[in-house]
Nucleic acid binder design. Structure first.
Length: 419
RNA sequence: GUGGGUGUAGCUCAGCUGGUAGAGCGCCAGGUUGUGAUCCUGGAUGUCGCGGGUUCGAGUCCCGUCACUCACCCCA
């Protein structure tokens, strides 16, 4: 197959009927936000490159090697968003939302792009639900966000996952801890790659998956043991609120995130039924981000959920994602007069809010019934010129095979009432 | 960017030590000129990923290449 007959590497098409589960999953992840005071925000799919390089951090893998960056015809450097938070923060600053009521509680959903080697659950084009609460540094807000993410997963029936939680400290205590860790890592026997990684961000070495590395890290200093009094108090309060909200978590003192802006509370939802890309959602507080983008020195907290990974997780748990919609009434016709009638009836039903469909293209009655069956409609109207002459149409209940003649005048109302 | 695995029908796959392609499902049609799902019968669709090599002969062996996939890394 040639390249123009194939979606680009790391991308995929969503097709019916599976696409219905995608819509349902997306809506389920969003549902908790709609009853929690969050407003929908939509920002461009691309931003000025600096929004991400300064927001996410130059030293991150995302910025240094995974961005889709291009020059437009006006010579601007633009980048397809690799995540949502930086763009939403840019909008928050641009429209001076910080001058209004705080926290600004915002959510969005859409495509993000990263140039990565594709893998199970990792795509170059993926979909996230992203949620932010900006402008207020209150541990109760941290707990709210975590609980909302959790509620989204629970709403789909997911249970086989862990909520990993930790605190990454802040500008007052992380630098000292970082120095401690760097000193500790210097005494270890690490390969060149890992040393490079340590030089860029020593915290990342902590979650190295290789056993020979983990063995050396047994006595590594941990951020949670070196929090300042205020960040520790913040973290304690977050945990208290989470308990009050009935959310369970596991302490993950080695949890590291790849975006530089995270501070204090940091969390990740890790599913046990997935492969290497097991993180179905994650987020944290990012108190320096607004300032990094030239805005006021305001705090923020947010999370992102991977819609595609959430669907994979649901599949791994054998969950059916309930889909809404689908054809309720299917109209099968025989003869020219009946076809006109069918087209008209379908129009009436749809106008009355009944999901209706009919058969197009000349196929026999058997083929039309097959199409009716496939549509999933509970009721099928069979109407031929012969029925019209008698002033009736046949209404068949597919599950039972039972079929009754209904006078044309009562047909639309009878069908509307039956679905 | 680095490794491993796999490329045969729309889908899932079979095809032994080389002898010019198969099954199941799906699709279409007929059995039933006005009835789906069940049953029976029939039918269509393949440059066996692509290019080269070895051979009388390659889906099968060799080389290259591309794609997909899993893992490292990173993250949703």
């Amino acid at each position: 197959m040639s390249d123009i007959q194939r979606a680009p590497k790391g991308t995929f098409d969503r097709l019916p009927p599976d696409s219905a589960a995608y819509l349902a999953a997306r809506d389920a992840l969003v549902a908790p936000l709609l009853t929690a005071g969050y407003g929908y925000v939509e920002t461009p799919v691309f931003e000025e490159t600096a929004v991400f390089s300064r927001g996410v951090g130059e030293s991150t893998d995302v910025v240094s090697k995974e961005m889709y960056t291009f020059a437009d015809r006006g010579g601007r450097s633009l980048t397809l968003r690799p995540e949502f938070t930086a763009g939403v923060m840019r909008a928050f600053i641009e429209h001076r939302l910080y001058a209004g009521a705080l926290p600004a509680k915002l959510w969005t959903v859409g495509s993000a792009f990263r140039y990565e080697r594709p893998q199970a659950g990792r795509y170059r084009h993926f979909t996230q639900v992203s949620v932010e609460a900006l402008g207020v540094d209150d541990p109760a807000l941290d707990a709210e966000l975590v609980a909302l993410a959790d509620a989204g997963f629970r709403g789909l029936g997911l249970t086989d996952y862990d909520l990993q939680l930790t605190s990454l400290g802040d500008a007052t205590c992380r630098p000292q801890y970082r120095d401690l860790l760097v000193a500790f890592l210097a005494g270890l026997d690490l390969d060149e790659d890992t040393r490079q990684r340590a030089a860029i961000n020593p915290l990342r070495v902590l979650d190295d998956k290789r056993p020979e590395v983990q063995a050396q890290l047994a006595d590594a200093p941990l951020m949670v043991d070196h929090l300042s009094d205020t960040t520790k108090a913040h973290y304690d309060a977050v945990r208290q609120h989470l308990s009050d909200l009935g959310v369970t978590w596991v302490e993950a003192p080695r949890l590291v995130r790849g975006l530089d802006y995270y501070t204090k509370t940091t969390f990740e939802f890790v599913h046990r039924g997935l492969g290497a890309q097991a993180s179905i959602g994650g987020g944290g507080r990012y108190d320096g981000l607004s300032a990094a983008l030239g805005g006021p020195d305001l705090s923020g907290i947010g999370y992102a959920v991977g819609v595609d990974r959430t669907i994979l997780a649901a599949q791994a748990e054998g969950l059916d994602i309930p889909v809404t919609g689908g054809t309720e009434v299917f109209v099968v016709h025989l003869g020219e007069e009946a076809k006109r009638f069918a087209v008209r009836l379908v129009g009436q039903l749809r106008a009355a809010g009944v999901a209706a469909d009919t058969v197009y293209g000349g196929r026999g009655l058997k083929g039309a019934m097959k199409a009716a069956d496939r549509s999933g409609a509970a009721r099928v109207v069979v109407v031929g010129d012969r029925d019209l002459a008698e002033g009736v149409a046949q209404v068949k209940t597919m599950a039972t095979g039972e079929q009754v003649a209904v006078p044309l005048g009562e047909l639309a109302e009878s069908l509307r009432a039956s679905v």
